[in-house]
């Protein structure tokens, strides 16, 4: 479970890193797509992690 948790945090870091990289290269459309596409699943994942913490 601990490894899964680390892996999930790593996924958040990867998404943020990629978005920032594309913004810094002025590829705003791709950066926006990465943000929009991961926003909902990322939010749902965070909710699931928090519920898991409470339990």
């Amino acid at each position: 479970m601990k490894i899964t948790r680390i892996y999930i945090y790593l996924m958040y870091i990867i998404v943020i890193f990629c978005i920032i990289s594309f913004i810094s290269e002025e590829h705003y459309i791709i950066a926006s797509l990465l943000f929009l596409g991961n926003m909902l699943p990322g939010y749902a994942m965070a909710m699931s992690l928090m519920e898991n913490n409470e339990n």
């Binding site: 998404v15 890193f17 791709i30 699943p41 699931s48 898991n52």
Partner: peptide, 24 residues
């Protein structure tokens, strides 16, 4: 346990980040 379906979906959408390869 975490919600496995949400985990699967998130894994899938994060795969879009593979396009970072083109900036390497």
């Amino acid at each position: 346990m975490i919600n496995e379906q949400v985990y699967r979906r998130f894994n899938h959408t994060v795969a879009a980040c593979f396009v970072i390869y083109f900036l390497f």
